[in-house]
Simulated scan of single mutants.
Amino acid sequence: MADETLSRELEPRVEALGFELVELEQAGSKQRPILRLSIDRPDSKAGEPGVSLEDCTVVSRALEPWLDQREGLSDRYVLEVSSPGVERPLVRPRDWERFAGAVITVRGRDTLAGRARRLEGTLLGLRGENQDTVALRIGDEDVEIPLGDIERGNLVYRWERGQKR
């Protein structure tokens, strides 16, 4: 689980570089922490190339001087910056809106929409007065799932026969 303060501090720094912070994962030990940042372009689309290795290098090099000076972080930290991948996680409310129309999977803590713990369908976006319900089309039926019931959501990428991996 990531430190929320660190995530809040990193987010504007990543955005200033022209990217968005998708996720921050902290691993390792207190003496040698590992910070894993997943970044994306704010205008990326499902199934299209997102960030490059060069983009990850730019973000890493830009953040290191700040992290080197940050109180409470061991000077032996390891920073890993990567793309969220083709099956990008849906983390923030804006993700659920931006990727409307894409095929996604959602996994719940318990059964979702009276069906199963894991569902796959076409994302329709957020609904509800507080934008706190995910609308999903499964087959020819639309279901709504409270955002709080979703443990994890991500895009689904379908490999085409003969496509290079």
Rank of each mutant, 00 (worst) to 15 (best):
L123F: 03
S7T: 14
Q31C: 01
R161D: 09
D55F: 03
T5S: 14
T57P: 02
D142A: 06
L24V: 14
L63S: 09
T105A: 11
P84H: 05
G101K: 10
R32N: 12
F19K: 07
L17W: 06
A2V: 11
G114K: 14
G101F: 12
L17C: 11
E23D: 14
R98H: 14
L35E: 06
R94C: 11
R152V: 14
V51F: 15
W66Y: 15
E71L: 06
T122G: 03
S83W: 05
A113S: 13
L73Q: 11
S29D: 06
Q26K: 05
V143F: 04
W66V: 12
E71K: 15
A135L: 13
Q26I: 10
R70Y: 12
G108Q: 05
D68L: 11
L112W: 12
V59H: 09
E129Q: 12
R13H: 06
E20R: 15
G121A: 03
V51K: 12
I150F: 10
P42I: 00
A2K: 07
R92E: 13
E11S: 15
S7A: 15
E11A: 14
D149V: 07
S7P: 07
D40L: 02
P84L: 04
R98V: 06
D132A: 04
D95Y: 00
D3Y: 11
R41G: 03
V106Q: 10
R70D: 13
A62S: 10
E160T: 09
A116I: 06
G125V: 02
G108A: 07
P146K: 02
S7Q: 15
V22Q: 03
G139V: 03
L6S: 15
V14A: 05
C56H: 01
V78T: 15
L24A: 10
R107W: 08
G50R: 11
R70F: 13
S74Q: 04
K164L: 13
A27E: 06
E141W: 00
S38L: 10
V22L: 02
S29Y: 07
P93Y: 00
P12R: 08
R41V: 02
C56M: 13
V14Q: 01
D142E: 14
P93D: 00
T5H: 12
S7D: 10
A100Q: 09
D142F: 02
P93N: 00
E25L: 07
D132T: 02
D68Q: 11
F19Q: 05
V86N: 07
R32D: 09
G72D: 03
L10C: 09
R76Q: 13
